[in-house]
Design a binder for these strands. Sequence first.
DNA 1: GCTTGCGTTCGAGCGCGCTCGAACTTCTAG
DNA 2: CTAGAAGTTCGAGCGCGCTCGAACGCAAGC
Lengths: 161, 161
Amino acid sequence: MATDDLMSRALAALDEVDGPMSVEVIHRLVDVSAATDPMTITEVADLLDMSPHTLRYYERIGLVEVARDASGHRSYDAAAVRRLVFLTRMRLSGMAMRDLQHYMKLADEGDDTVPDRLDLLLEHRDTIRRRLKELTLSLAATEYKIVSYGGHTGPSSAGNA
Amino acid sequence: MATDDLMSRALAALDEVDGPMSVEVIHRLVDVSAATDPMTITEVADLLDMSPHTLRYYERIGLVEVARDASGHRSYDAAAVRRLVFLTRMRLSGMAMRDLQHYMKLADEGDDTVPDRLDLLLEHRDTIRRRLKELTLSLAATEYKIVSYGGHTGPSSAGNA
DNA sequence: GCTTGCGTTCGAGCGCGCTCGAACTTCTAG
DNA sequence: CTAGAAGTTCGAGCGCGCTCGAACGCAAGC
């Protein structure tokens, strides 16, 4: 259900707070999968709003390792779920699969690679910032065009159809 | 050269102004191709920082019509260039080719379709806004992770490598 | 005349990120 | 005992947005 995925909930949380980006909101995002029993593939899929197919794909390309239960079914422990939350968040922010594979390879190599991972994150942060600037500009241009078409710049187009 | 493409110039303009998003900046973006003689495909490609291949592709899928000169070469007049500026801007802001085809089909049908086009723009504006929220959240999450790795939240990672 | 360089058309190929289907196993309910 | 739901592996396929290469045309300069 797209109305209950991670990002929707986070955005809803943002709307509730109705203030600047707060650490509290971030914590909620992280805590979503705080202390949980092992989950099945469909449970994780529902949690992250993605298909079991995609979860298997992520495992296949080495982004995450998943244990199996007695009958060979995947069993996602808290660590795996946390990693997947991180992965989906980074994907959503535009990080390429390549880079995520690189990052996770480093993560699997232990704490020595923290500086390298930090570098990747810093670079990605800059990428997001650039994208934010671009999008802000695009938004302004779009609104400009809307006005030139006789539209008004309101809070939402819902109901304008 | 990517250092001289439209968006770079626009962002540079933004930095110069160093204030809130201004109509002035938008005008500069629009005026980039104000009163110009017909251009060749490479000139347009350089202007928009895309390849001639892509320009031909856009024409092929019906996004823009381009006149030919005596020897069969493409000749981009001001209107074509303006349309391409619009197209690249919309693409950059994440509008799908499908939607752009739809939009341009409407545009080619005349002024009667202005309301329809307006609706598309309003919808797209909402999409950009959603994406901005998502990205803002992603940025916060990334910075949170950076701090948890011992990094600092500065203006840029340049020089942190 | 001939090379160089920029243009043309056309169809095929590519990288990304999934997405799916086939064939099979395992568990649960009736 | 049986039917159905949900899981497994594997390889292939897909939609998007380009991207490229082959084969060719034309105009200018040596």
